[in-house]
Computed example of a mutant assay.
Amino acid sequence: MVNYLSNEQIAEMMRQLTRARIENFLGQYIGTWRWWVLIILLIVPWFIWYKLVDKKRILEVTLFGVIIMIFTITLDEIGFVLSLWSYPVEVIPILPRLTSIDYTMLPIIFMLVYQYFSTWKSFLRALVVLSTVFSFVAEPIVVYFGFYILIKWLYWYSFPIYIVMGVLSRWIVKTLIDIERKS
């Protein structure tokens, strides 16, 4: 007979893990150069985005970015929980993801691609270039500097995911705009 852990036992294990992560964060990472880089990457790009975003399309572009953010956070959480990768340095230890990338860098860069490449053809081309750069340049750099540890993941797995995220997000936004215009 298999003895399964109770929900209370699992919750206690989660509390212990969270406590350990917070202690590790406070003892090893807060205030380090990598932590400061993440803080800067979390905040500064939003000011740049505000300067570059087309204010006439700000709701549309932002909706696209929020959808990208939802995909990114969800996929990042799944990958983290399944131990496909981990993040030794975090902005906030209770969020087990690379917050600066999930909440800022990816959404902003995707939003700018969405804004500047308005046809499906140009958007897809830009998306392939963006996915290539993210998968085979940015991710290895982030790994090299110790922000991201690959466990059961390869860079090329990310390539189609970035493309699918962009295509689905654009399709959702365009579909919602069409629905709004028809009503």
Results as ranks from 00 to 15, higher is better:
Thr74Glu: 02
Thr74Cys: 05
Leu75Ser: 07
Leu75Met: 15
Asp76Gln: 07
Glu77Lys: 14
Ile78Asp: 09
Gly79Glu: 08
Phe80Ser: 12
Val81Met: 14
Val81Asn: 11
Leu82Ile: 08
Leu82Met: 14
Ser83Gln: 13
Leu84Val: 11
Leu84Lys: 12
Ser86Gly: 12
Tyr87Trp: 12
Tyr87Asp: 10
Tyr87Cys: 12
Tyr87Ala: 04
Pro88His: 06
Val89Ser: 09
Val89Lys: 07
Glu90Asp: 12
Glu90Met: 15
Glu90Val: 12
Ile92Glu: 13
Ile92Thr: 10
Ile92Phe: 15
Ile92Asp: 10
Ile92Ala: 11
Ile92Gly: 02
Pro93Gly: 12
Pro93Trp: 04
Arg97Tyr: 11
Arg97Thr: 15
Leu98Met: 15
Leu98Phe: 03
Thr99Tyr: 10
Thr99Lys: 08
Ser100Glu: 04
Ile101Ser: 10
Ile101Gln: 15
Asp102Ala: 10
Asp102Ile: 05
Tyr103Glu: 12
Tyr103Gln: 08
Thr104Ser: 15
Met105Trp: 11
Leu106Asp: 06
Leu106Trp: 00
Pro107Ala: 02
Ile108Val: 13
Ile108Thr: 09
Ile108Cys: 04
Ile108Tyr: 00
Ile109Gln: 10
Ile109Tyr: 13
Ile109Glu: 08
Ile109Met: 14
Phe110Asn: 07
Met111Phe: 09
Leu112Lys: 10
Leu112Gln: 10
Val113Ser: 02
Val113His: 02
Tyr114Pro: 04
Tyr114Leu: 01
Gln115Ile: 01
Phe117Cys: 15
Phe117Ile: 04
Phe117Met: 06
Ser118Met: 09
Thr119Tyr: 00
Trp120Lys: 06
Trp120Gly: 03
Ser122Glu: 04
Phe123Asp: 00
Leu124Asn: 04
Arg125Tyr: 13
Arg125Asn: 09
Ala126Val: 02
Leu127Phe: 00
Leu127Asp: 00
Val128Tyr: 01
Val129Ile: 15
Ser131Gln: 02
Ser131Leu: 05
Thr132Asp: 00
Thr132Arg: 03
Val133Asp: 01
Phe134Gly: 00
Phe134Ile: 01
Phe134His: 05
Ser135Pro: 00
Ser135Leu: 01
Phe136Asp: 08
Phe136Val: 06
Phe136Lys: 09
Phe136Asn: 07
Val137Gly: 01
Ala138Gln: 08
Glu139His: 02
Glu139Thr: 04
Glu139Arg: 03
Glu139Ile: 01
Pro140Asn: 04
Pro140Phe: 03
Ile141Pro: 05
Val142Gly: 02
Val143Asp: 11
Tyr144Phe: 14
Phe147His: 04
Phe147Tyr: 14
